[in-house]
């Protein structure tokens, strides 16, 4: 994913056991913080036939 040009901060892998509730919370927080810092994803989103600009306007 990173090789194709998706920001590596959006890509997270983790292994959380069902007994590791605190780790689960930490991972979810880390992922949301990292993605929020990047802002909305503009890549790897289908434009549904619209050009980029009108798609962005519609999405906003």
């Amino acid at each position: 994913m990173a090789h194709m040009g998706v920001e590596s901060e959006r890509i997270h892998f983790s292994w959380v056991s069902s007994a590791e509730s605190t780790k689960f919370v930490r991972v979810v927080n880390e992922v949301t913080e990292a993605v929020r810092a990047l802002g909305p994803n503009r890549r790897f989103v289908k434009s549904h036939g619209l050009d980029r600009q009108s798609y962005d306007e519609k999405a906003a």
């Binding site: 990173a2 090789h3 194709m4 040009g5 998706v6 920001e7 590596s8 890549r43």
Partner: peptide, 14 residues
């Protein structure tokens, strides 16, 4: 060569 590109350039390249 591709690995050395920035994220932006990679996306554009493909």
């Amino acid at each position: 060569k591709i690995e050395a590109m920035s994220t932006e350039d990679k996306w554009g390249y493909f």
